[in-house]
Design a protein around this nucleic acid. Structure first.
Lengths: 284, 284
DNA sequence: GCCAGTTTAGAACAAATTTTCCACCTATTT
DNA sequence: AAATAGGTGGAAAATTTGTTCTAAACTGGC
């Protein structure tokens, strides 16, 4: 046994993950329970844990030994220490004093706080999405998609993930979809072939990229249908659009997010798939 | 004994406080230790607790009995339950299941309903994200990013938008970032040049794409640092990872979303930018 | 300074939990 | 098809842990 036995919980977790494949079926069972329910391991007795993952107590011991411990108890100590370390157990008097309102000055040097802020902002953004997008617009968008021979996706920089997601998932519901990705500088050639039976979905946010703008103009000149996902109805890309979704994505201190746009994209694909897709419960 | 024996921790706390004065010296000693170190009571053995407050084990038992319990173990159960209740978060799967129950009654032929469902599911997913990602993992991820000469992003199919977003936005905070995009089938050549001073961030969800798996294996073989964003710690890509984020993205009727992963990506970039980026002069 | 009532320390005991062991099963190999 | 190796379930053994008990110490009143 070359590997030193893990002596803290993160180490054990990664050790379990990396050796998971080579474990026996019962040990795999224990492994995933251990990773998912650390608190149970810390607090409950072996018999209880064993019951919860439908295994004999001896199997837990075997599991612990497989990772180099002398017994299950020694492994449990790791989980207990983790709890002791994570909750600094403030004294009772302190705990009472803790009823102070949470300060709104968040310390951004702690990544965890950044994540809390973003998830919060994104939640608000998603709630807003429901009000900002009308049922009529959505219905129309599905019609447009359905009526098109093929759908071309345009979006660069920040908007690129949305366009890429649309291209990928539309293909997966068996809609002909092509990402105008600009590889080898072919965008002009690709968009020159757009016709009235094609739909272009352009995704563009401020500052509006000239590449996307060029596609929009070509599409419009050629009489192709044009759907736009943007952050401002009055922006340059929205002007020629047959249908325009105005999405105000979450923004925290100048960092704009994409969750609302992605959610809309998902909605478009799934709604299309449900109405016109090949079969209604297959997508990856 | 008129007073009913407290059956939750807050009740016990106030009971201890109010009867503190009438307790014997040794029991006072125990009382204050119990109030100040709830975690110890929950996790440690009676002998250890006794040692910590310089008392005999039997005294702890007498203390428990003084408050109406049948023994010290019964009192410990209160403290253990408190821990289980405060840090559960196994409820995600249950919430999702509840949500799906509601969701099945919805008429999916109306796109507007689809959007409502997705935004709702994504909100639940974002709430879960906060519980599922630990501060230590985030801190470590920023370290890894900071320590790398360059960051390479791997992710195809559904995971591609996340990888693309990371590549784009990392470049914008002036971190050398390259998307292993497989254009012209160069992925093998590109990843062969990875070295120990490089960081690979691989994004991969079930069913794990072999392209990403190949990058992961090459990176691992070459000694490059490896950070993984995936949906299962026990999946194939997580095995070799130096750091693994396990993200359970929202899923509605088999359509999986990306919002939580995107939110994490955003967090990584912004946290990095705040700590090490080009303009660190933001207030707060 | 001595006595009744309480409280306490420590050991003895009892219960519980963990660990070991062995027979049986399953899959793989020859 | 038989043999072997590894994995598994279950029960017995060993250990740890919780509880009880008793003698001793302490307290306050006389």
């Amino acid at each position: 046994m070359l590997q030193a036995t893990p002596d803290d919980l993160p180490a054990l977790r990664s050790e379990i993950s990396s050796r998971y494949q080579e474990l026996s079926p019962r040990l795999k069972q224990v492994a995933s329970y251990v990773l998912d329910n650390p608190n149970d391991i810390a607090l409950e007795t072996l018999a209880v844990i064993a019951g919860r993952c439908a295994v004999q107590p001896s199997t837990i011991v075997r599991f612990a030994k497989a990772f180099g411990y002398r017994g299950a108890s020694e492994m449990q100590r790791l989980f207990r220490n983790e709890i002791l370390a994570s909750a600094p157990s403030p004294s009772y008097s302190e705990r009472i004093r803790q009823f102070q309102g949470r300060s709104n000055a968040v310390d951004w040097s702690r990544p965890y706080n950044v994540m809390r802020e973003f998830s919060e902002a994104n939640i608000i953004g998603l709630e807003h999405l429901r009000e900002a997008v009308s049922e009529a617009e959505l219905d129309r968008s599905i019609e447009l998609m359905q009526g098109a021979d093929a759908i071309y996706l345009a979006g660069v920089r920040r908007a690129f993930p949305v366009a890429a997601y649309l291209a990928y998932s539309l293909s997966h519901v068996e809609k002909r979809a092509f990402l105008l990705d600009g590889v080898a500088g072919m965008t002009a050639e690709q968009s020159a072939m757009l016709g009235p039976r094609d739909l272009v979905i352009a995704v563009s946010f401020k500052p509006y990229a000239k590449e996307t703008l060029a596609v929009v103009e070509t599409a419009s000149a050629n009489g192709a249908q044009l759907m736009v996902i943007t952050d401002n109805r009055l922006g340059p890309v929205a002007k020629e659009a047959d249908l325009c979704f105005e999405i105000k994505d979450a923004e925290v201190r100048q960092f704009r997010s994409l969750t609302a746009s992605m959610c809309l994209a998902q909605t478009l694909v799934v709604s299309y798939a449900y109405k016109f897709g090949p079969d209604r419960d297959r997508s990856k």
